[in-house]
């Protein structure tokens, strides 16, 4: 019950104080007292049904929000430290680590990277997610085994790279050679899957701000990924999250790393163009 015309009614109801309606709150996120995070922005032009985009942070409780405002409280930062060890660990038959090519300090070489992924890779002739790029380096540059797509090591490495872009606006390209993949992702976003016949849009576009049982629905943005969830007490990879949402429609899911989820990740990322990268984030 969340198409644009309904919003006006809901707002009126909230104003007279009867409805339990609770859209995004009006809190502001500043991390460590210095990094300002944009959690609300005008929707990018390509979005047809939504005017304003919000980070998932704006739909969480004050307690959960507070955990993301300070790195000492953010349990996701532990994985960042662990990945820092992996960064300089030599692996594979080429005797290299990430640091061999990208230098000792990822803050220098990786700033801005997360903000533009997924992204078209000319050499590979495909759209690559950050996870694919990490494994691309491991396999061709290091001669090392790829990480499992949603493994703890992969998710931690994504967190380390993402944190270097914290505060920068998501700015994923959807034109040029990436367009075809983007269109495919858009189609998936609006397809009603499973025996419950629900699309991403049914929950995250038509019903954000509403509760579905105990859950307060957000717009399903991915600017905060990887995400530390209090529910499973670990850092969660974005495509693992997609898989969970598709499963909850009583559908046969797609696999992380599949062409469908790569396209979906590009499309969903582009719906967040303008929000700040704020990963690792904390959710319930």
């Amino acid at each position: 019950m969340k198409y644009k015309p309904m919003t006006a009614i809901a707002v009126t109801l909230a104003a007279i104080g009867t409805a339990a309606f609770a859209d995004a709150d009006d809190h502001q996120l500043v991390i460590n007292g210095e990094t300002e995070i944009v959690t609300e922005a005008a929707a990018p032009d390509h979005m047809e049904n939504i005017d304003t985009i919000y980070s998932g942070w704006r739909f969480r409780s004050e307690e959960t929000q507070a955990l993301e405002a300070d790195d000492f409280d953010n349990p996701g930062m532990i994985a960042v430290d662990q990945a820092m060890d992996s960064w300089s660990t030599v692996e594979g038959d080429k005797n290299k680590s990430c640091a061999s090519c990208h230098g000792d300090d990822p803050a220098e070489s990786m700033a801005g990277v997360r903000a533009v992924y997924p992204k078209w890779n000319d050499d590979a002739g495909e759209v690559r997610t950050l996870a694919m790029q990490i494994n691309g380096c491991r396999e061709s540059q290091m001669g090392a085994e790829p990480y499992g797509y949603t493994s703890a090591k992969m998710t931690a490495m994504e967190a380390l790279i993402s944190v270097q872009s914290r505060g920068l606006p998501v700015n994923v390209a959807i034109d040029g050679p990436a367009r075809e993949t983007w269109e495919k992702g858009k189609e998936i976003y609006y397809t009603r899957y499973g025996q419950l016949e629900l699309s991403c849009a049914n929950c995250h576009e038509e019903n954000y701000g509403n509760h579905i049982r105990a859950d307060h629905l957000s717009q399903g943005q991915i600017n905060g990924f990887p995400t530390y969830r209090l529910k499973n007490t670990k850092l969660n990879q974005v495509q693992a999250r997609f898989k969970g949402c598709v499963r909850d429609t009583r559908a046969e899911t797609f696999n992380p790393g599949s062409p469908e989820f790569i396209a979906l990740e590009l499309y969903v990322a582009s719906r967040g163009n303008g929000l700040s990268v704020s990963a690792p984030s904390v959710r319930n």
Binding site: R192, Y193, R250, A251
Partner: peptide, 14 residues
């Protein structure tokens, strides 16, 4: 008439 129907909430095919 479903798209990718699953076996309840297992994520597997129906």
């Amino acid at each position: 008439g479903f798209v990718r129907p699953g076996d309840a909430y297992t994520g597997k095919a129906a």
